[in-house]
Computed example of a mutant assay.
Amino acid sequence: MLDWQLFGEVAITLAVIMDPPGTIPIFLALTSGKTVGVRRRAAWQAVAVAFTVIVAFAIFGQSILSYLHISLPALQGAGGLLLLLVALELLTGRASEPSATADVNVALVPLGTPLLAGPGAIVATMVFSRQVDSVRTFASVALAIVAVHVMLWLSMRYSVLIIRLIKDSGVTLVTRISGLLVSAIAVQLIADAIRSFVAEP
């Protein structure tokens, strides 16, 4: 029997942070100009990468950060800088230029991490993993993480249908808007990191 309260807390928290519907315009922007097969492959690769990162940090997160002497604010700042570079590419239109390694890069960075498995999702997962003290709580947290990643995959998988409706001009517009949104997310991450560094004794 699952701990449904814990399941709900984990699922809702991660869904809000990882924002499956919000990934659709960014996914469309980053995969514009690609074939349907490439977009579908990028969708499941990005979710697989995000899931791997989330699970790894859930199990080994605190040990990894402690071993490397990395603080959570440093992780936030790094993610913010990486997203800022992505945002500049989206705003200038360079992100839509085809290249031999574009598919792999889009699935790994920035889709898989830090857009999906970003500092917020990683920290939330590490916090919830501390509540695991039995098979029941472990199953609740694990199934909640799986459920959120299934929602992410469905959002990106069926975003291909949206492309058929909005055409190339619509994708260009979505790309520019996504660039603004991603840049705002990046600045917020950097600002939060700086605030945390300043607040440290």
Rank of each mutant, 00 (worst) to 15 (best):
Arg157Phe: 10
Ser32Cys: 12
Arg195His: 13
Ser99Thr: 09
Ala199Arg: 13
Arg164Gly: 15
Ser129Met: 14
Asp168Gly: 07
Ser63Ile: 15
Leu173Gly: 11
Leu116Val: 15
Val47Ser: 08
Arg40Gln: 12
Ser155Asp: 06
Thr52Trp: 10
Thr52Cys: 09
Val146Ser: 08
Arg41Phe: 05
Ser32Thr: 15
Ala50Lys: 01
Phe128Trp: 09
Ala43Asp: 03
Gly170Ile: 07
Val16His: 04
Leu91Gly: 05
Leu85Ala: 12
Ala46Tyr: 03
Leu68Arg: 08
Gly37His: 05
Thr13Lys: 07
Arg176Gly: 06
Leu108Lys: 01
Val171Pro: 02
Val86Leu: 03
Ile177Glu: 05
Thr125Cys: 15
Trp153Val: 07
Ile122Pro: 00
Ser99His: 12
Ile145Ser: 00
His149Ile: 08
Met126Leu: 05
Pro119Lys: 00
Ser63Met: 12
Val198Phe: 07
Thr175Gly: 10
Ala107His: 02
Leu116Met: 14
Gly77Ser: 13
Trp44Tyr: 15
Ser196Leu: 07
Gly112Leu: 08
Leu181Tyr: 09
Ala121Gln: 04
Val171Met: 15
Thr137Phe: 10
Ile166Met: 14
Val174Arg: 00
Leu81Ile: 15
Pro201Trp: 06
Leu85Val: 15
Asp19Phe: 07
Ile190Pro: 05
Leu83Tyr: 03
Val53Ile: 09
Ser196His: 04
Phe197Lys: 03
Ala78Met: 08
